[in-house]
């Protein structure tokens, strides 16, 4: 590969060294272990594989994970947009604190978030009591599961939107208003189209994180098969625990989960590439 190009073109040293270290570490730590999962699941026959991933509890777990992560990502898009807008456009006391704290879900260990949310939204918790008066059971239900995923996903949307909003000049809105457009029309037709790629990226990242999430959801969801609150990661983990070790089942489900992740990653990349092209034009 390196012979193809003229040697003189590479003035900067270190190609071989950095390539060597990068590829070695990447292969040893990431690619080879992941390949073992693939190898393990390919050892099964097609029918075996299908049988494993179409079991009712597995299908239900996928529906729960994807459904709740989707709802949470939509909620995050709405609130993320408002938060990003407020943080970029307005001045108010406590703004810097808010800006810094947005990333708390990144920094706070998921297990801590999980047990805390689970307690807060249980019948005795401060918010859970409020919700149960309204007839909503939050902890140990899909509602709680979605709340945990909203918590985990919010920084993805806000951080995707902020830089784009900062670059968006006020002149667009002013021009639109001077031409007589109403505020909501300006928002829908002038601002939103500019934000769509960033919003979709944030949505995709939050969704990807939500579908695979483990630590923050297992406490609050209750993991009940009957109520359909088991998530995919929980099912995989269950199959790894001593007592009922089922590596094949785990590998098969993991393969499907990997596939979903790759599709989402692809989606995000396409969104970004198209957006990049549009701004260049």
């Amino acid at each position: 590969m390196s012979r193809k190009r003229k040697k003189g073109k590479r003035v900067i040293p270190g190609f071989g060294l950095t390539m060597g270290i990068t590829v070695t570490l990447l292969s040893l730590l990431i690619l080879i272990p992941l390949a073992s999962v693939l190898a393990y699941s390919f050892r099964m026959s097609g029918t075996e594989f299908l049988e494993l991933i179409t079991r009712p509890n597995v299908v239900q777990a996928f529906m729960t994970s994807i459904g709740c992560a989707f709802v949470a990502a939509v909620v995050n898009c709405v609130f993320g947009l408002i938060l990003a807008w407020v943080l970029v456009r307005y001045e108010f006391p406590g703004k810097r604190l808010m800006d810094g704290m947005i990333e708390l879900p990144f920094a706070l260990p998921t297990a801590v978030a999980g047990i805390t949310l689970s307690r807060m939204y249980s019948d005795q918790g401060i918010l859970g009591r409020l919700l149960s008066h309204m007839g909503i059971q939050a902890s140990y239900s899909k509602v709680g599961l979605t709340i945990a995923l909203v918590f985990i996903g919010i920084p993805f949307v806000v951080r995707a939107l902020q830089p784009v909003l900062e670059k968006l000049p006020h002149t667009y809105e002013e021009a639109s208003e001077m031409l007589g457009a109403s505020r909501s029309y300006t928002f829908r037709r002038v601002i939103l189209p500019e934000l769509t790629p960033a919003l979709l990226t944030g949505f995709g990242l939050a969704l990807a994180r939500g579908i695979g999430e483990y630590g923050s959801v297992i406490y609050i969801s209750g993991n009940s098969e009957k109520e359909g609150t088991q998530v995919v990661s929980y099912i995989i983990m269950q199959k790894l625990n001593s007592g009922s070790v089922d590596y094949e089942g785990a590998a098969a489900i993991a393969l499907v989960l990997l596939l979903i992740s790759f599709l989402l990653l692809l989606f995000i990349n396409i969104v970004q590439i198209t957006a990049g092209r549009r701004t260049k034009q």
Binding site: A208, G212, E213, M237, L240, A254
Partner: peptide, 12 residues
């Protein structure tokens, strides 16, 4: 973009 549980599974 992948679930951390899969990371654990991969090493096992």
């Amino acid at each position: 973009s992948i679930s951390p549980v899969i990371a654990g599974l991969a090493y096992i």
